[in-house]
Design a protein around this nucleic acid. Structure first.
Lengths: 131, 131
DNA sequence: TTATAATTAGTAATGGTTATCATTATTGAA
DNA sequence: TTCAATAATGATAACCATTACTAATTATAA
C-alpha cells in the first residue's frame, strides 16, 4: 500500500474546506488554493479532494445538478439546496438514524447510512421575490 | 410557449421507463429504444428524457456517483443503492413528510421536498460474500 | 546525503451531456 | 386533402467536469 507523504498543496485544500462553509466545487477550491499557490494545477486539487474524500477527511456532496461539491464537516448532517440561487447550506437538525432501521425492514439487504437533501427556496430568495 | 408535438421516439422512451424498474441511465434507455428505432440518436433520447423530466412525467435520480438515472415512477419514494453492485432499487416505505416540517423549523427558508438515498449492500451481494 | 516513492504542474484524454443544423414528421388551418 | 408552420429528428460537433499521463520535483526514511 501507498504511504501518504505530506504536501503543502493538500494542506491548502484541506484548510480551504475547513475555513469555508459554502460547500465549494472543485473549481472554487482551485481558485481559493491558487491564492497561496499560483501555479497549483486543477488536477492537483481534484487528486487531493478525492484522496481526502476517500479517506473520510472530507465529504462529497451531490446536490442533484451541477458539479460535485465538497464539505469539510464530516459529521452526519443534512443539507438544504435553494432552487433559486443554488446555494447549499447546512441544516442544524439531528440526522434521523431510525430511518435506516425502517429502510432495513423493507430492504432485505444491509443499510449502512442515508443521505438526504432538502429542496426549496432560501430566506434571501424569498425576500427578494416579495419586493 | 412551445406546443409539444407527438413523437414516436418519445413514446418509446416513455414506454421503456414505464416497463422497467431498474432506473436506467440515458445510455440504457438508448439501447432499449434502439430495438424499436434502430437509428434513434442518443441526443434524441437525452432530449426526450429531459423534456419528460422537466414536465414531471418522469424523475431524475442522482445516486451520488455514475451517470444520471431515470425513474418512470413519479410517486414520492426512497431508493436504495448497493455499494457493491451499484443497483438502484425502490424502497417500499412511506416518505416521511414530517421531515420537511422539521427541516423547515431550522431553515428559515421554505422547504418543498426532500430526496433520500439509502446506501448499503443488497441481499444478493451479501449472499455472494458469504460463499 | 542519497535512494525511493509520492506528489506535482502541465496537458491530453475521457465520458456524460448538450448544442447545432439540415432534414423529416406532426399538426392545425385553408 | 393539401399546405404552411414549426416541433422533432439523426448526425455530429462542442462542452464541461473529471481523470489519466508524464517528466520533473519534493518529501521521507535509511
Amino acid at each position: 500500500m501507498k504511504t501518504r507523504k505530506h504536501s503543502r498543496q493538500r494542506d491548502a485544500v484541506m484548510n480551504c474546506l475547513m475555513a469555508r462553509h459554502d460547500h465549494p466545487t472543485a473549481d472554487a477550491v482551485y481558485l481559493s488554493v491558487r491564492e497561496e499557490f499560483p501555479n497549483v494545477s486543477l488536477g492537483t486539487v481534484y487528486r487531493n479532494l478525492n484522496l481526502l474524500a476517500d479517506s473520510g477527511e472530507i465529504r462529497r456532496l451531490n446536490c442533484g445538478h451541477g458539479p460535485e461539491r465538497f464539505d469539510g464537516d464530516t459529521h452526519p448532517h443534512y443539507h438544504f439546496i435553494c432552487r433559486e440561487c443554488g446555494q447549499v447550506t447546512d441544516l442544524p437538525m439531528d440526522v434521523l438514524e431510525q430511518m435506516n432501521a425502517e429502510a432495513q425492514e423493507c430492504c432485505g439487504g444491509q443499510i449502512d447510512n442515508h443521505i438526504t437533501y432538502f429542496y426549496g427556496v432560501c430566506r434571501e430568495c424569498l425576500d427578494k421575490a416579495k419586493e
